[in-house]
């Protein structure tokens, strides 16, 4: 296996949790809800995902456990931010703090354990083609799933009536309510979808990336996923580009350190955030009108009776 191939494979693996979590957050934000608790939902997903896989011996059961954990976390957020109309930023931050603590508690019994990581696809012939074969036909299932998920979300948002209604809620919840759409219920579903994706993204880490659980193993990936949705200006296609770009930066930083290149690693780690800021500036300069962000993003909605 050549160095190039190794780098590409590790970039794909590093990008997948970002892509999964950001896709979920994109749907949540498109409905008008800003859930800053992605990091918290991910880390709980990681702990529960590993626990599920370790106890059952099945990667699929582990992934499902991660998703369910993410949904449960998102329900706490939904109860506060949608049910009680609490400030979404504060609730999201609290959810992250809660998640970090909770995952340590859940995962305490699993630290030091190992599982067999998710198997990689192998199609005789195709997977053996040099370079491309291994990259295209030899990945773990999560990577294919993440691509399918983005395509599905794109199709849902732009090609279905339900997707149109979801975007409408994110653009103007007062209008959506006046037309008779159940804004809070639609947002609840979007938040739960975001939770499931974040939980799955978290579970990917101990199930496929490194076959063990350590506390705090998401290491800020949830925050990068949040930055990514902004970077992608809430569009699924740009999300794919952004996720692989951000994934590449994190991997190249490791290789740069290994090769002894004298750029401080802290600078490299901050690149995704810097890139997001630059993209935001460019977008707002190039904008001719309209709003790139969902117009109702982060605003509280209380229907009248």
């Amino acid at each position: 296996m050549g160095l190039i191939e190794a780098i590409i494979l590790s970039v794909l693996a590093a990008s997948t949790p970002l892509l999964l979590a950001a896709t979920g957050e994109l749907v949540t934000e498109r409905s008008g809800v800003l859930n800053l608790g992605v990091e918290g939902m991910m880390i709980v997903g990681a702990a529960c995902g590993f626990g599920g896989a370790w106890l059952s011996g099945s990667i699929i059961v582990g992934a499902l456990c991660g998703m369910v954990a993410g949904i449960l976390m998102s329900l706490i957020f939904a109860l506060m931010a949608l049910g009680l109309a609490v400030n979404q930023v504060a609730t999201g931050l609290a959810l992250t703090i809660l998640g970090i603590g909770l995952s340590g508690l859940i995962g305490a019994g699993f630290v030091g354990e190992r599982i067999t990581p998710a198997p990689h696809l192998h199609i005789p012939g195709l997977s053996d083609i040099p370079l491309a074969g291994r990259i295209l036909f030899g990945e773990d299932g999560f990577i294919y799933l993440s691509i399918a998920l983005v395509v599905g979300v794109w199709w849902f948002l732009y090609r279905t009536r339900a997707g149109l209604i979801l975007r409408a809620c994110g653009d103007n919840h007062i209008s959506a309510h006046a037309l008779g759409y159940p804004v809070l219920r639609i947002r609840l579903y979007a938040v739960m979808f975001g939770g499931a994706c974040a939980g799955l993204a978290g579970a990917y880490l101990p199930l496929a990336y490194t076959p063990f659980f350590i506390p705090g193993m998401t290491a800020g990936r949830g925050w990068i996923a949040l930055a990514l949705t902004v970077f992608a200006s809430w569009r699924p296609a740009r999300l794919v580009v952004g996720a692989y770009l951000f994934g590449a930066v994190t991997i190249l930083q490791l290789h740069a350190q290994g090769a002894g290149i004298g750029i401080p690693s802290q600078f490299m780690s901050s690149l995704p955030y810097l890139a997001t800021i630059i993209v935001l500036v460019l977008l707002s300069r190039a904008r001719t009108g309209g709003s790139t962000a969902p117009a109702a993003l982060g605003t509280v909605f209380v229907p009248d009776r």
């Binding site: 009536r161 149109l164 209604i165 975007r167 409408a168 653009d171 103007n172 007062i174 209008s175 959506a176 006046a178 037309l179 008779g180 759409y181 309209g290 709003s291 969902p294 117009a295």
Partner: peptide, 29 residues
């Protein structure tokens, strides 16, 4: 939607429109 099904329509004072959606999408909603 119940009112609309009976044949009652309404034009709101503060328009119930979505700024970032197209005219056709607004109508479809």
């Amino acid at each position: 939607s119940d009112a609309r099904a009976h044949g009652i329509g309404m034009v709101f004072q503060h328009f119930s429109l979505f700024d970032n959606l197209t005219v056709a999408e607004n109508v479809a909603l």
